[in-house]
């Protein structure tokens, strides 16, 4: 971690003052406001309806039940959401990584005719874009509506990630590539055998960013996919929440639905927990890689 550098110097001649105490309190309070909503959501997802109705504000539930998860998985939406998101990841990750690496490698070369043009060509997309409507019509004219490739392809390259990788390759010594070239290696070999193995740290970071982006993707799916069987996880979650809301409203007026076993808040929160579970589990261990992406970018900028 970057922040480590400072701590060595800071120890001498400093006492723990009122100012420090105040900082400690403010930062701790902010941390609590972040943790607490997640905590209550997780608690609610494990509560029984009976207990929730008695008191929605429960820090430690008396009994842990899996009713909400049972109902949710029986409905099956979340399972198909998981399946679709995993398919998007499996199709999208190799494509994104391949396109990003090749482009970054080319842009980090010292010279080839058209390099400047290529750079401007991709930078323009960072400043100017068509926006939602032309993007939607474009997908429509490509005939990709209701086809998962629409989502996979429209999330293909993140220009910012290309620049991160490019900046990193810039810091590698040129002599390495030159000597390989003299030995008769072609560009493919240099890229896959020398450059990419040396760029592992940044590739790990960029790969993680891509994964999180693809995991959280929902807007493109909402526009391009109309079949519920194709919905990714995030969109399923959105549907579950909207449906639970509607069901709540209906149940107040219509006794027909009374027989259905629903504890809508519990189901909603169970869906939330299942959706964020992978990120929640790995984030504490991988946070340093995300931070690395920023610092590697910052060093260059």
């Amino acid at each position: 971690m970057v922040i480590r550098k400072r701590k060595v110097k800071k120890v001498h001649n400093q006492r723990f003052t009122v100012m420090d105490l105040l900082l400690f309190l403010i930062l701790t309070l902010f941390a609590i406001t972040i943790v607490f909503p997640f905590y209550t959501s997780i608690v609610v997802s494990f509560m029984s309806e009976h207990e929730y109705l008695k008191n929605p504000f429960t820090l430690i539930p008396k009994e842990i039940v899996f009713d909400s998860y049972d109902t949710l998985i029986k409905q099956g939406n979340i399972v198909s959401g998981y399946k679709n998101t995993l398919i998007h990841l499996a199709l999208g990750m190799p494509i994104s990584m391949y396109l990003t690496c090749t482009l970054a490698y080319a842009l980090s070369k010292r010279y080839f005719p058209g390099k400047k043009i290529l750079f401007v060509f991709i930078m323009i997309t960072m400043v100017f874009g068509g926006g939602t409507v032309p993007a939607f019509l474009n997908i429509k004219e490509l005939g990709l509506i209701n086809n998962r490739w629409s989502v996979v392809l429209s999330n293909g390259i993140g220009t910012f990630y290309v620049i991160l990788v490019m900046n990193y390759i810039h810091t590698l010594p040129n002599s390495l590539f030159d000597s390989a070239r003299i030995d008769g290696a072609n560009e493919m070999t240099i890229m896959f055998r020398i450059v990419l193995p040396l760029s592992k740290p940044i590739l790990a970071t960029v790969g993680l960013f891509y994964m999180v982006d693809k995991w959280n993707e929902w807007y493109g799916s909402m526009l391009y996919l109309n079949k519920a069987s194709l919905y990714p996880l995030q969109l399923e979650l959105k549907q579950i929440i909207a449906n639970a809301q509607i069901l709540d409203d209906v149940m107040m007026t219509d006794s027909m639905y009374r027989s259905m076993p629903t504890f809508s808040m519990g189901i909603k929160m169970a869906a939330v927990v299942l959706t964020m579970l992978p990120i929640m589990c790995v984030f504490p261990f991988l946070q340093k890689y995300f931070v690395k992406g920023v610092t590697l970018g910052a060093v260059k900028g």
């Binding site: 290529l118 474009n138 429209s154």
Partner: peptide, 21 residues
Amino acid sequence: LLIVPAIVWYIVLCYFPMGGL
């Protein structure tokens, strides 16, 4: 040859929508 796929991607998914404007 290496960057053709990436360029095609930019043209089809970024520049087509721009033209779509």
